[in-house]
């Protein structure tokens, strides 16, 4: 393709090709501090392309593809190329990765132990992880995917640039160096989006596994509440949050069973981030 770059996030080496220079330049700025290994072959290929040659210039719209293609994925206008790249990278991992069990969950680690947060879009799992990752002793492992190693049950990081949405943008932007923020992408199909580059120590430690110690299922809104969750419910919720649970077969079942048996789980509700972080720290202290 005309323009290309390579990015390594956690265990996945991406090769990203594009019909336009802009999304590649934006990615290279956002991922500038990530380690590079130019000699390593790519695990996953991502393509950002124009459906027709003239659509490179005329109302340019970015289709996403690569090793795996979702036929009805809607294209995005060129100024949202960075979001298209993010979606395309997620898609390739979600559909193609088999080494680990993928959980659609955010995670942070402290002292080699991991806190994993799973929830629907809007549950606040990304914002909580981003805020925890900024303050104090936590290392951000990822805001989108957490990888579970079927061999030993460890959690592995996938610390891509955090995708901050809507109100979370101002909340996080107030606490971090502006140099770590990507451009504001206003009015995307997912609302306003701005990317946050994780802290340098989190990126440097991205290959260090952490032992799952606490599973949370956050829900943003309502009074502060904590409810212990049984193994069965946690198991079912996590099968729904995994993109490759079925494809892994027995190994996936064994990994997930072990995770819910060995890790205490809670559903939490919280009215604002401060209360959410308070609940998390409280549960962590007991875990």
């Amino acid at each position: 393709m005309r323009h290309e770059t390579r990015i390594a996030v956690g265990p996945v080496q991406f090769r990203i090709g594009s019909d336009w220079a802009e999304p590649i330049a934006a990615l290279e700025r956002l991922y500038a501090v990530y380690p590079k290994d130019g000699m390593r072959p790519a695990d996953a290929t991502v393509r950002l392309f124009a459906a027709r040659p003239w659509r490179r210039w005329l109302r340019p719209s970015v289709h996403i593809g690569g090793d795996f293609v979702v036929p009805d994925a809607l294209p995005l206008p060129l100024p949202m190329g960075l979001l298209a790249a993010e979606m395309a990278m997620n898609l390739q991992v979600a559909l193609g990765w088999r080494r680990h069990m993928l959980l659609h969950a955010s995670a942070v680690a402290r002292d080699g132990r991991a806190l994993i947060m799973s929830g629907e879009s809007g549950s606040g799992k990304s914002t909580l992880a981003a805020l925890l990752g900024e303050g104090g002793d936590w290392r951000l492992m990822g805001d989108e995917f957490t990888l579970i190693d079927p061999a030993d049950g460890d959690a592995l990081a996938f610390p891509r640039a955090v995708s901050l949405k809507n109100e979370a943008i101002a909340e996080v932007a107030a606490r971090v160096d502006a140099a770590r923020l990507g451009p504001l992408l206003a009015g995307t199909p997912k609302g306003d989006i701005r990317h946050l580059v994780p802290r340098a120590d989190a990126i440097a430690a991205m290959h260090e596994p952490a032992r799952p110690a606490l599973l949370l299922f956050p829900r943003f809104g309502g009074e502060s509440a904590v409810e212990p969750m049984g193994e069965g419910e946690a198991f079912v919720r996590l099968t729904e949050a995994s993109t490759n649970y079925v494809a892994l077969g027995e190994a996936g079942f064994a990994a997930l069973t072990r995770l819910v048996r060995e890790t205490p789980a809670f559903a939490i509700s919280y009215p604002d981030s401060e209360a959410g972080i308070g609940l998390v720290e409280h549960l962590w202290a007991e875990a």
Binding site: G38, R40, P41
Partner: peptide, 14 residues
């Protein structure tokens, strides 16, 4: 070499 593998893996997947 590396560039060979990139393409081979991509085409083999396709």
């Amino acid at each position: 070499a590396r560039p060979d593998w990139d393409g081979i893996i991509g085409v083999a997947r396709s």
